[in-house]
């Protein structure tokens, strides 16, 4: 029988990595830094979670490690794009390659295996059978809406993404705000990692979810709440594939092919709705103090 409640909860859990990733990307891009590196940050976070948790025998240590690992990658991204003014997409791409090598390298050093870690028994507690961390992305999205739209910090961060030169002329420390945006995207990528699969690290386990998070952010028109709802659309699309046999419409599709379902959904929504979205005006623009 189709267990509707379980489907609902499972969907929440599967949406969480993309929702947190999308929220982080919103912070980064609101400040004007395009963040293709979300995928790499999430992957690094997943490894660091298992590492920290097994090292200190505590899931909280795992969570802190995951955030630290993802923030480390985000700091390199900030350094390259904000301080050294490198093209944002080039830096993000390089960091995704780096993260893939880094996690495999560390896994070899720490667990003695290159493509997976040992099983981690110190996972976050569950509530109603799912990871507790997965319950917080909607409250955090609402908090983000408030933070970005109702506080001085949010206004300044948005000004850096819309018109950094104007912000600069009004005395806003544009570089600092951009760094904060990028670092927050790392923090959220760490949360995303903690909800993905804290039981074990497996090579390339994020499998494009960081990019789905970016698609959710674009589909959500750079609005935190809509981005999270878009992430839930992808998350529930993925959940449907696990309940495939219980759903008459889907049971005929090959189990191999249905793995592509969330990505097809993402493409379809991007194709159908993108005309209405609007990125921050100076998103991805290299800002240099005193020029422009």
């Amino acid at each position: 029988m189709f267990d509707f409640w379980y489907f609902l909860l499972r969907g929440l859990q599967l949406s969480a990595p993309m929702a947190y990733g999308a929220l982080g990307a919103v912070y980064s891009e609101t400040g004007g830094v395009v963040n293709i590196a979300v995928e790499g940050m999430m992957l690094t976070g997943t490894f660091f979670f298992v590492w920290g948790a097994t090292l200190f025998k505590s899931w909280i240590a795992g969570l802190l490690f995951a955030i630290a690992g993802a923030v480390l990658i985000s700091l390199i991204h900030g350094l390259a794009t904000i301080t050294f003014k490198v093209d944002h997409v080039v830096s993000g791409t390089a960091l995704n390659i780096l993260a893939s090598g880094l996690t495999r390298f560390l896994s070899m050093q720490i667990f003695g295996m290159e493509t997976q870690s040992t099983v981690n028994p110190y996972t976050p507690p569950t509530f109603l059978r799912i990871n507790v961390i997965a319950y917080f992305f909607i409250p955090l999205a609402i908090f983000t809406v408030w933070l970005l739209n109702r506080t001085r910090f949010g206004l300044r961060l948005r000004s850096c993404g819309q018109n950094p030169w104007a912000a600069d002329s009004l005395g806003v420390n544009v570089y600092a705000y951009k760094y904060i945006g990028v670092i927050l995207s790392g923090v959220f990528a760490g949360l995303a990692a903690a909800t993905l699969y804290p039981h074990q690290w497996i090579d390339a386990m994020t499998a494009g979810r960081g990019f789905l998070a970016l698609a959710a952010m674009i589909f959500g028109n750079y609005n935190p709440l809509y981005a999270v709802l878009a992430a839930m659309l992808f998350g529930y699309a993925e959940t449907l594939t696990y309940f495939q046999n219980q759903i008459p419409l889907l049971s005929g599709i090959s189990p191999i092919l249905i793995k592509a379902f969330p990505y097809v959904v993402a493409l379809v929504v991007l194709a159908g709705f993108i005309g209405r979205t609007k990125a921050p005006k100076a998103d991805g623009v290299i800002f240099e103090k005193g020029e422009g």
């Binding site: 390199i76 390259a80 050294f84 003014k85 490198v86 093209d87 080039v90 830096s91 791409t93 390089a94 960091l95 995704n96 390659i97 780096l98 993260a99 893939s100 090598g101 880094l102 495999r104 390298f105 070899m108 050093q109 290159e114």
Partner: peptide, 23 residues
């Protein structure tokens, strides 16, 4: 030294090339 070090080095090389290029 595991093979995967090369993955790190590849990513690092792209980054350092574009950063040094800017400088």
């Amino acid at each position: 030294v595991p093979n995967s070090l090369i993955g790190i080095i590849s990513g690092l090389m792209i980054l350092s090339v574009v950063v040094i290029d800017q400088i």
